[in-house]
Design a protein around this nucleic acid. Structure first.
Lengths: 214, 214
DNA sequence: ACCCCACTACCTATATCCCGGTATTGAAAT
DNA sequence: ATTTCAATACCGGGATATAGGTAGTGGGGT
């Protein structure tokens, strides 16, 4: 039941070091390594790993392009980015390319195994420096929803979110421990206040306001 | 050399639970707690802690406003946000308010001490769920999946987009010059192929795939 | 040549949505 | 003190969505 991973980095010594470090972890199996993007694609096609640990700054096909192609060709695979620095553009592009984790090489030694386990479980793992970069990038991307909280009550907000998630009135009623008819009243009030007329518009509104993600 | 922290949460039981959990950590000293934002400000002024662990959803002055005031009045203090859910708006606003860490209450038990130590060292600590939210928020609108086109026919794609825009079957039928019953067949086939079961999920799918904007 | 599938169209049936009303309670605002 | 409104709950009814079946036509691929 070990996690099958592959490594990609243009520095052979780093590959060797990573491999020896990860071989101490019983639940992680390194099934191959590659020195550039093209070799990585071939390696992944052959070994079918769950996770690829990819250096961002490789010559030839870099980590970003390699990640895009990797995920396009094998949507199930999860990519952890490894980089020398937490450069903002690299971070954003790698994460947009679909990387689920991002570590810098200065991270503590036990962060890579921890990141691998977290990502294998479907979580997102960012090292502190990268988290700080993201926080910085997200600065100013809030503030848009004040009209929602102003117009809707707390309960109505809850109902709105659940409706936008595709739950039916009866399911929502069970979840909130209230009668289905009450859920429908909330729904109607929400629609009246926001001038929406069906679940699709309601869902789009919730996503637009950041109440739920797509 | 222990880290002096204060806790703020409107649920007394949670305060007690957090306190007893943190008192097991020798390098962390809980020097006070508060049940709302106003009490937190007074407490911080009196005890001068290094870190404040603040619940986002408190009555009266909520965690966001409390954090803003806290940092405005005492720039050295570091705030770790604690919240029931990883709601996108709360995350963005708390981090914009200056929080250095963000945990949800469903996090593993050892995450809070780890977050406290990381933040005490000037790092940023986000739990995986919040990291995922940030990644989502930072994602530019560049990606346009092709897997949709692979699974759906041309006509089905048109119907999907119109459904996601909130049009009813009959309206779509008129728009596409086909019978309403045909639209419904397309709708069912779309749902079957994509494993979706209502317009809300269908709308989210369309937005996620970039077929329409929120 | 054959089969698969997208597209077209219709029928039936149940569930859910959407809209209209009414009413009580408690909290907040004026 | 009065008003306003969120939150709770119910009734009725027409519209729509959801889910199943059948069936003909035309295009593309083995």
């Amino acid at each position: 039941m070990s996690i099958r991973i592959v490594l990609a980095d243009d520095h052979k010594m780093i590959l060797a070091a990573l491999r020896s470090m990860l071989e101490k972890e019983k639940d992680i199996a390194v099934v191959g390594d590659a020195a550039d993007g093209a070799a990585l694609l071939e390696l992944v096609a052959r070994t079918e790993p769950e996770i690829a640990v990819v250096d961002v700054g490789m010559p030839g096909m870099n980590g970003i392009e390699a990640t895009q192609r990797l995920i396009a060709g094998r949507p199930g695979i999860r990519v952890i980015a490894l980089s020398a620095y937490s450069d903002k553009r690299f971070v954003l592009e790698m994460l947009n390319a679909g990387a689920k984790g991002y570590l810098i090489k200065a991270s503590a030694g036990d962060e890579l195994p921890r990141a691998i386990r977290a990502v294998a479980q479907g979580q997102t793992y960012l090292c502190p420096e990268v988290a700080a970069v993201l926080v910085d990038a997200a600065r100013g991307k809030s503030m848009l929803q004040v009209n929602t909280a102003a117009k809707l009550g707390r309960r109505e907000l809850e109902v709105l979110v659940l409706l936008a998630e595709g739950k039916s009135s009866s399911v929502i009623a069970a979840r909130l421990h209230i009668a289905p008819s009450t859920v429908e009243v909330h729904r109607r009030n929400i629609m009246r206040k926001l001038d929406l007329h069906n679940v699709a518009e309601l869902t789009r509104y919730a996503i637009r306001e950041g109440l739920t993600s797509a």
